[in-house]
Design a protein around this nucleic acid. Sequence first.
RNA 1: GGAGAGGUGACCGAGUGGUCGAAGGUGCUUGACUGGAAAUCAAGUGUACGGGCAACCGUACCGAGGGUUCGAAUCCCUCCCUCUCCGCCA
Length: 434
Amino acid sequence: MLDSRYVADHLDEVREQLARRGAEFADALDGVASLVSSRRELSRKTELLQGERNTASDAMAKLARSGDKQGMAARRDELKALSERVKGLETDLAGVEAQIEETLLIIPNVPHPSVPDGRTEDENVVVREWGTKPSFSFEPKPHYELGEQLGILDFERAAKLSGARFSVLWGLGARLERALQTFMLDLHTREHGYTEVHPPYLVKAEALRGTSQLPKFEDDLFKTKRSDPDDPSALYLIPTAEVPVTNLHADEILDAAQLPLAYTAYTPCFRSEAGSYGRDVRGLIRQHQFDKVEIVRFAAPEQSLAELERLTLHAEEVLKRLGLHYRVVEHCAGDLGFAATKGYDLEVWLPSQRMYREISSCSVFGDFQARRAKIRYRPEPKGKPRLLHTLNGSGLAIGRTWVAIVEQYQQADGSVLVPEALRSLMGTDRITSR
RNA sequence: GGAGAGGUGACCGAGUGGUCGAAGGUGCUUGACUGGAAAUCAAGUGUACGGGCAACCGUACCGAGGGUUCGAAUCCCUCCCUCUCCGCCA
């Protein structure tokens, strides 16, 4: 969420910055500006009258102590009227504040000045590549064909259980999923300094509001208690570990010395994929449920851009160790996530598609999430609390990593070599038909 | 799910209608004392918004929301959470 006062005081600037995203928020922004000025006026009036009421109330207390029943009776009506006026103003003020919040909650973050222009993902900028495209003496197969032939991947039975966009992994396929969890968590905790977290997979609406999946992207989420969809206490399945992990520090004031905080978490992720009906219908690329190891950092504002580079390298290291060819692209302004102010995608090479596909998204959110979730830190021991900056990235999406390994390491005979780094966890150096 | 108890500042804990942003203690910070430290003594020590160059002042906040009242941390209602016992369960 943007700062309402900043928006009101820098209307044109914010308008221009948001225009880079290719979206129009003119009306909403004007609305915020005028609401902010009526809030100022209203709160001044309210406080003045509250002060009057408090003074009068103290006088009443004195009368009460001196047992002046008559004096009290004489003033009661007058005070009641005053009190009613205060309540009226308080209600109005709360109304204005709610309107400001409501508007601001659906306005995206402004792109950082360093973010390149562009409308769609086609205008993202390739920053660097790592490794080389594997070459094959045969036509490389898609992972879903290989997986089914090897008996490690089963969509038919998944459909029987849960419908489309679910999968069952068998044998070494399941083992590979588990090996990847362990491998990634071990790398981040042992070598990159992250603290491992095991969070809940069901969260309150409040948490989703903190990281900005709500209120705007409710359709993308699975909500529990469907029998009473309006129950405000209904829990949601997490679409990413970002939600529970970032909100760990909601409503907290951290010490500067604690920063940067670095957490990693393995969780399943649940996404309704509403509106993506025709896309990636085959294979593991787009599922309602997938596993992911997430990395999350909390940083002082001055550090956050450098922290983004660091976090991105941590995610990249996973691909390097697995020997998977990939590239890094920077989001153009139009392709930036709702809450992000700058970000990179890691795209892994999929031979069967002859394409780079997103396997990680690393973002810095500035104070956008911190303002929503009220995550602050104290710059100096006695100083005023200040919003910190949040960051996160996939480190990595495990399903897509599984896909990349099967495709990049496939052999002419249909078997799949196990990357060196996973061999001890897998207990084998090759996946063959069972 | 049933019965009971409770949610107060960084922490413990007092406060059952008015002068309570909140006693007392602990912790922390600063000062005094000391060769230094401990102990002791003194002062300070929440967050947000508004005003002021500043000292500081005003307003709100005692789990959340609503109500009663001239006035609520204190009374009433609803919800959330924690603890104890029973039941059930992994």
